[in-house]
């Protein structure tokens, strides 16, 4: 399973200012070409008046605030409120706005796993991902291996994620675009009757909302 294998090997307090410095005390290795390029672009844009520190800080805080837990709350609400679920399926962007999530300009298409259908999301051309609800895409989602293979052998790929799909279940693979993102509503597992939305949200992992895994109670 690919869920939650962070390799955060240093402690820090998530002070937002740390990204505005070079933090040589933390990153002891020499900076790579693209790290240097990022800092150089930032400096040149600021010096030339194309970017202010406040704009950058706001954008940075926004990136850091994108959490897959937002997606999990949306799914828990959809499981608990059939009308909300229907609105999500009808118009993802509008329904997400109801719960305070601005999915941006790209169309958010929400698809539902049922007893007969397993939906899986990929972006073969790039790594387009519903960041507004799931945060930044995990490494494997961005990998050429996943991007190339899941569209041609989804059952095999799913089994590598520990998800076995019965032969009589349809697998639908959705290929995202810069202007079109997908979010999967997983099947609500049995044994969760009467659960609160918080309890439900706790079993909705990122992988279940991409469709490579299914939640269990």
């Amino acid at each position: 399973m690919a869920e939650e294998r962070g390799t955060h090997d240093h402690d820090h307090d998530h002070d937002h200012n740390h990204d505005l410095t070079f933090q040589p005390n933390i990153e002891d290795t020499e900076a790579g070409r693209y790290e240097l390029m990022t800092y150089a672009i930032r400096e040149l844009l600021m010096e030339k008046g194309h970017l202010t520190p406040d704009e950058l800080r706001a954008a940075q805080e926004k990136v850091e605030s994108l959490q897959k837990s937002d997606g999990a709350k949306v799914i828990a609400k959809a499981w608990s409120d059939a009308d909300f679920k229907q609105r999500l399926l009808d118009d993802g962007n509008a329904a997400l706005l109801e719960v305070g999530v601005d999915a941006g300009a790209a169309k958010m298409t929400v698809v539902e796993n049922t007893d007969d259908v397993q939906n899986v999301v990929v972006c073969t051309l790039c790594s387009c991902y519903p960041r507004a609800v799931l945060g930044m895409p995990p490494d494997w989602y961005r990998s050429k291996s996943y991007r190339s293979r899941v569209v041609i052998e989804p059952r095999q790929v799913l089994s590598e994620f520990g998800t076995d799909v019965p032969d009589d279940m349809t697998v639908r693979v959705h290929d995202s675009l810069a202007d079109l993102r997908y979010l999967v509503i997983p099947r609500r597992p049995e044994g969760t009757d009467g659960w609160s939305e918080d309890q439900l949200a706790a079993i909705v992992t990122r992988d279940t909302m991409v469709g490579v895994a299914n939640p269990t109670a």
Binding site: D19, M136, D139
Partner: peptide, 24 residues
């Protein structure tokens, strides 16, 4: 899409500070 780039590495790494900054 449809090619074969081999096994999928399931490891998930933390976004590096410069990657976050570039995105921002």
């Amino acid at each position: 899409g449809g090619k074969d780039y081999g096994a999928i590495d399931p490891e998930v790494t933390e976004m590096k500070p410069w990657e976050r900054q570039s995105t921002a």
